[in-house]
């Protein structure tokens, strides 16, 4: 008779991060589905997606890369490199936001407005909500950077940086997904 059965366990913090990610995904899945259905209706707008999106995509992928390097550095206790790359990922994250802002300008110039036909409004809302989450990710990295400047992030204390790295990669992946879908259903 088995009496001592092993129980499946994960680090609760990482686990919570994943569930959090799933629930955020649901926001975007619902918005994107609404957008796809809307685009399927006759009489919509023809929209030229801003070229700026290409640059912001490159920047956000770079940012994820920096974040991963920062994580590896923490694992190897290379704390200088850690701070350096955390900072780099914040910097590239902010640049991404700025580029997104410019791409909104590009949209306005091409005659697609936030207030107007929903086809256009959706693009603003979807990118806007993504940017909002990206800001929360930036704040998270800033907290990690603050902790690491007090030498509290290292190979024996990886929880926080692991959570923020997971979240950051998710936001990058999310952007790629959004971009591809916006592009395909245009």
């Amino acid at each position: 008779m088995k009496s001592n059965v092993k129980i499946l366990r994960m680090n609760p913090n990482i686990f919570i991060t994943w569930i959090f990610i799933i629930s955020i995904s649901m926001i975007f899945v619902s918005l994107i589905s609404a957008y796809i259905v809307k685009k399927g209706e006759p009489g919509g707008l023809i929209i030229n997606l801003p070229n700026m999106f290409i640059y912001s995509t490159i920047v956000v992928v770079l940012s994820s890369l920096f974040k991963q390097i920062a994580y590896f550095s923490a694992k190897k206790d290379d704390l200088n490199k850690l701070n350096y790359f955390l900072f780099a990922s914040i910097l590239s994250g902010v640049s991404f936001l700025i580029l997104q802002y410019f791409s909104w300008g590009e949209l306005v110039n091409s005659g697609v407005f936030f207030v107007g036909h929903p086809d256009g409004s959706f693009i603003y809302v979807i990118t806007g909500v993504h940017a909002f989450h990206l800001i929360s990710g930036l704040i998270f990295i800033a907290i990690v950077l603050f902790k690491s400047s007090k030498l509290e992030v290292h190979s024996k204390n990886l929880n926080l940086i692991e959570m923020s790295t997971t979240y950051w990669h998710f936001l990058t992946g999310l952007w790629l997904y959004l971009y591809v879908t916006l592009y395909l259903y245009n």
Binding site: S23, I24, M26, I27, A34, V115, G116, S121, V125
Partner: peptide, 24 residues
């Protein structure tokens, strides 16, 4: 976890319609 975020989306678009003049 799977359904409440969708209500949030619905509410968000409603807020846009109410306060910012969009037409979702």
């Amino acid at each position: 976890v799977l359904s409440f975020p969708v209500l949030l989306s619905a509410a968000l678009l409603l807020i846009m319609d109410r306060s910012f003049g969009t037409s979702f």
